Simulated assay, not measured.
Amino acid sequence: MTTPFRIGVLGTHSTGKTTLLKRIEMELRGHGIRAGRTGNFGKGAAEIGLPKMQRHTETSTEWIIARSIASEIELGGVEVVLADRAVHDALAYYTAALEFRGEPVDSAEVDRLRLLASTQTPKYGLLIATRLDPEVPVNKQHSYDPRYRALVDTHVHALLAEEKLDHLVVSSDSTSQNEAIQTAVEHALKAVGA
């Protein structure tokens, strides 16, 4: 069995990551490509009593990174893995949570988590990072702290720059979204030889 092509999406909450991946998945399936999505790690962390969002810790970060890695591997039999929250996303959420709480960064711990995340970098054929548009309203069912949400956006893009990770930035604009979908599909089709 060949290694699947991986597309990872990062970005702060409610910036269209899951919707974007669903659209990419539909396009790929329309081309006869077997694709599978990962995700919902925050919910999984909460179910086992780990903190999330502003309360994110090094333990919850490590669990989410490890679970993300395992979930991508568990998607056997697919040609394309669509990672809803590539592994570096959890690290950005953690460093944003530390800043939000005004807590000092434990450099050794962050370096350890960065190393763990970096082991997965070569597996991604394409990384897509959503960009927060504060003008787009958030679903009223969610009570997100706007300051934390903005911090996560800043930390995601800073981390990608610091790690020098090639990525495609996607805004909430429909043209940007459509271009990202087209790019992702083209990369995937080329990678699987379709």
Rank of each mutant, 00 (worst) to 15 (best):
A66T: 13
I181D: 04
R112L: 15
E163C: 05
T175P: 03
G8D: 10
V152G: 09
G16T: 09
R6S: 00
S107Y: 12
A35N: 13
I48R: 12
F100S: 05
S176T: 06
E47W: 00
T3F: 05
L132W: 00
A188N: 00
L127R: 06
V169W: 07
P122N: 09
F41W: 07
M53C: 13
M26E: 11
R67C: 02
R85M: 01
A117C: 04
T130L: 14
H56D: 05
A117I: 01
N139G: 04
A70H: 03
E25Y: 01
A90E: 08
V138C: 04
I48E: 13
T2A: 12
E72A: 01
I65H: 04
P134L: 11
T175S: 03
H157D: 10
A96C: 05
I64H: 10
H142Q: 13
R29Y: 07
G102V: 11
G39H: 13
S60T: 05
W63I: 03
A70L: 14
R37K: 12
L115H: 11
L160R: 10
W63A: 05
E186S: 07
L28F: 08
P51Y: 12
E72C: 02
Q54M: 10
E25Q: 09
L189N: 12
L132G: 01
L132Q: 00
E72H: 03
L160Y: 04
A117T: 11
L168P: 07
Y94S: 02
E25K: 03
L126F: 08
S68T: 10
H155T: 02
A35E: 14
L21E: 11
K190G: 10
T15C: 06
A191L: 09
V152R: 00
P134N: 09
E135D: 12
L168I: 08
T15I: 08
D145P: 10
D111Q: 13
S118V: 12
